[in-house]
Design a protein around this nucleic acid. Sequence first.
RNA 1: AUGGGCCA
Length: 260
Amino acid sequence: VISWTAIISGHARVGDLETAQRLFDSMPERNRISWNAILVASTAGGNLEQAKCLFDRMPELDVVAITTLITAYGRAGHIEQALELFLQIPETDEVAWLAIIQALIENGQIATARSMLDLMPNRSSDLAARTAVINAYARTGQMDRAMELFQRMSSCDAVAWNAMVVACTAAVGAATALELAAAMECEGFLASAITYVGILVACSKMGRIEESRRRFWSVSFDHALEPIYDHYCCLVDVLARAGQLERAEDLVRFMPFVPN
RNA sequence: AUGGGCCA
């Protein structure tokens, strides 16, 4: 049952609900964790009603299953339902708290998110959890706390750095964000495509066209990354803000992405 | 083997 569940989980991760479902239906026995895995596959498929149907038919609902659905509701903009579910959890754990706080933030309910963050108990030193908390502080107007926690982290990864870089642009200033991005590379972390979104947004906020351009090319030349859609958007943004509308328009027309 | 963290 462990092997079957692991394979279902893999298909869930790449969004292949059909295969996940076929395997789930044909596996010889199922336990609570297999049901949770197929629920994840179902939410990843984007059909919330279908996921809710499955949820209602599940033989056992644990905090993992409920948290899965909370996250799905949050991403779909159904924050009331997410909150309702959270209140139904008999024994909340740290992941459940972080999931509802993240959902509140994504749905613009900053004040509530801030209160829940204050109420949240038992904080572990788990890397993802710490980063989630730091990010939540940053997005609820408590950048000082975010910085403090970040500096106290004994180990961190590129995701934590990216979160700080992005948060800095909004809450402190673009120049500080760029300094942080530089510090990140000094510490030996490779800038990822997402780091570059942060860097380009910062350049754009400061109106630095030349630096934006340079950084944009550096994405592929210095880091062997393919520029993603967001990078083109940043470049369009900085050109447009500087009044170079023709150049901005040309870029929209000729970039290798369909503009949204 | 299942849920939570970075992309303006």
